[in-house]
Design a binder for these strands. Structure first.
Length: 563
RNA sequence: UGGGCUAUAGUAUAAUGGUAGUACAGCGGAUUCUGGUUCCGUAUGUGAGGGUUCAACUCCUUCUAGCCCAACCA
């Protein structure tokens, strides 16, 4: 039995079909080598996660290896701080590229050699046209281009000029090395594409050793070839580039990786392009690349998402070639699913109103035993202090409750979770009519939350003892955009005109149960009946945690209310 | 002188000539000390027309719609 036998449990998609066919026919010697090639010019988002989970996951599934390669061929856009951020994010998702951390810039010398080879084969030439002339002579989509007047330079002259380009004899833009293909090709990319341009710029790794830098199409296929990549996955917009990718490798007659394109990820109510995310960051709409409202991996991490939930999400959305926009609800579902199993429950009141239990002794405190995680008995129990004055959620009380509302109301009995049944007797309001105190009585026989006479209540509510409550800031997040897709922006507007003004709500005096005072950055909890929250690593200080809402709980009442 | 690609429920994806399935969302119900979780049930789909075949999401054909390509970006 071969170790490469397809695993039928794996989710099927067209790339698996291709790989399995290649394994079956012995193409690439039955090996699978993939790569993820980010340009270090920004942070990774969940769309990139789809890309590397796919490439890396496939390598794992078929017992191959995967590389991390920084595609750093444009020094004016790249920065080492992004290299570090990218590595951190990929590791966070659980991948280990071991020692296979490569940089396109490490191949510059080799790429230069291949370029010389192409010149010698009369497959490349140095062009002296200006940028404008090159553009004009490229033709249009519906009309052929015209050959550069310099296209017929001798091989010797091309060799000489190219060497002098490298030596730094020319200004930026003076010359360019071009592949000699076909200016009349219906594929614009095949019209003598540029291979090298002059950039007198300091590179973050090679310093000043180069002043000519290779273009993407020329560089990328060589990077894949040099590393022995078998299946080179990329997004759909590179489909038209494939003939060029193949052309360079054929001319050079070197290892030929197979480029396979798939549809990039889009998600409703957010932006997922590096350019748009950067716009939000630089305009100050969000607080940085790691703003919890962003679907950058650093933002999701800060928001409290688990790596597992993101990988589950990516697994479920599948892979195909049709443009698609995944419902944000699916991402929320996968994070709830994971957090439901792993996070401990606590009680926190985000919008507090005071409850006074008039028949409870003023000087008494009791410790109520609460279950930490009903999904995981091993999580054990804890004690929560209970006293005469408590806070409950303002939304959990209504003076004139509608039919389907079965929480606290005048004359009604409800259960305080793990504590007592209480009955509302009356409320006290301030001059403006706002309720300041809800007065109740409790039934001492219901301690722990059950009535010995078997009577039932419709609602169970969370609460926090006023005297023991811990004040904290809680940050509530909502969708970034008010529209599902940036396709919906009206004429003359941009996605920036559709930013949800309520995407961040800061509640500064929330009342938390005392056990939460020792929560540390990154800790995750379920605030009962409210949602999943995690301790913000940036704003929290020792002893003063700030919480981010990762996701709300599903809320049937909120749905009913809207109707 | 244009080329390349895509089309299956609301959304995302399976079905590779043989019962159109799964997940999320929706709706209805049961259970529940979280209006959570869990469980059960349910509506909704092959872009359109023609053809081949006993049989078509699948093959052929003609349309239609959408996306990508004219950076010295990746």
């Amino acid at each position: 039995m071969s170790t490469n036998e397809p695993n039928t449990e794996l989710r099927r998609h067209f790339i698996r079909d291709i790989i399995e066919a290649d394994i079956a026919t012995g193409t690439f010697g039955g090996k699978v080598v993939t790569r993820f090639p980010p340009e270090p010019n920004g942070f990774l988002h969940i769309g990139h996660a789809k890309a590397f989970c796919l490439s890396y996951g496939l390598a794992e599934d078929y017992h191959g290896v995967y590389n991390l390669r920084f595609d750093d061929t444009n020094p004016v856009k790249e920065d080492p701080r992004f290299v570090e951020a990218i590595k951190k994010d990929i590791k966070w998702l659980g991948f280990d590229w071991e020692d296979r951390e490569y940089y396109a810039s490490d191949y510059f010398e080799q790429m230069y050699g291949y370029a010389v080879e192409l010149i010698k084969k009369d497959k490349a030439f140095v062009d002296s046209q200006t940028l404008d002339e090159i553009r004009k002579n490229r033709g249009t989509i519906k009309s052929p281009g015209t050959n550069s007047p310099y296209r017929t330079r001798s091989i010797q002259e091309n060799l000489d000029l190219f060497a002098r380009m490298r030596a730094g004899e020319f200004e930026d833009g003076a010359l360019v090395l071009r592949a000699k293909i076909d200016m009349a090709s219906p594929n614009m990319l095949m019209r003598d594409p540029i291979m090298y341009r002059i950039r007198h710029a300091r590179h973050h790794r090679t310093g000043d050793s180069w002043c000519i830098y290779p273009m993407y199409d020329y560089a990328h296929c060589l990077e894949d070839s040099i590393e022995g990549i078998t299946h080179s996955l990329c997004s759909l917009e590179f489909e038209a580039h494939r003939p060029l990718y193949d052309w360079y490798l054929e001319q050079l007659n070197i290892h030929h990786s197979k480029q396979i394109e798939f549809a990039r990820l889009n998600i409703t109510h957010t932006v997922l392009s590096k350019r748009k995310v950067e716009t939000l960051v630089s305009a100050g709409v969000v607080e940085g690349w790691d703003d919890p409202r962003l679907l950058t991996l650093s933002g999701l991490r800060r928001r409290g998402y688990t790596p597992q939930s993101i990988r589950n999400f990516i697994d479920r959305i599948g892979v195909a070639k049709s443009l698609s926009t995944v419902d944000f609800a699916l991402l929320e579902h996968t994070v709830r699913e994971d957090l439901n199993k792993r996070s401990n429950r606590v009680m926190a009141v985000l919008n507090p109103v005071k409850v006074i239990i008039d028949n409870y002794p003023a000087d008494q405190t009791e410790e109520m035993q609460a279950i930490n995680n009903p999904e995981n008995p091993e999580a054990g129990t804890r004690l929560v202090p209970f006293s005469r004055e408590l806070f409950i959620e303002r939304d959990d009380f209504m003076e004139e409750p509608p039919k389907k509302f079965y929480r606290l109301a005048p004359g009604r009995e409800v259960r305080l979770r793990y504590a007592y049944f209480i009955t509302c007797t009356h409320v006290v309001k301030d001059a403006s009519g706002t309720i300041t105190e809800i007065h109740c009585t409790y039934d001492p026989a219901t301690k722990g939350g059950n009535a010995p006479d078997g009577r039932k209540v419709k609602a169970t509510m969370h609460w926090v003892s006023a005297a023991h409550a811990y004040d904290a800031e809680v940050r509530l997040y909502d969708k970034l955009l008010t529209v599902e897709s940036t396709d919906e922006v009206a004429e003359g507007k941009t996605f920036m005109d559709y930013i949800n003004p309520n995407s961040l709500e800061i509640r500064s005096h929330c009342k938390l149960e005392p056990s939460l005072a020792k929560a540390a950055a990154g800790d995750r909890f379920q605030f009962e009946r409210l949602g999943y929250f995690s301790v913000d690593p940036v704003y929290s200080t020792p002893g003063r945690p700030v919480f981010n809402r990762t996701a709300t709980l599903r809320d049937e009442w909120a749905k009913l209310r809207k109707k």
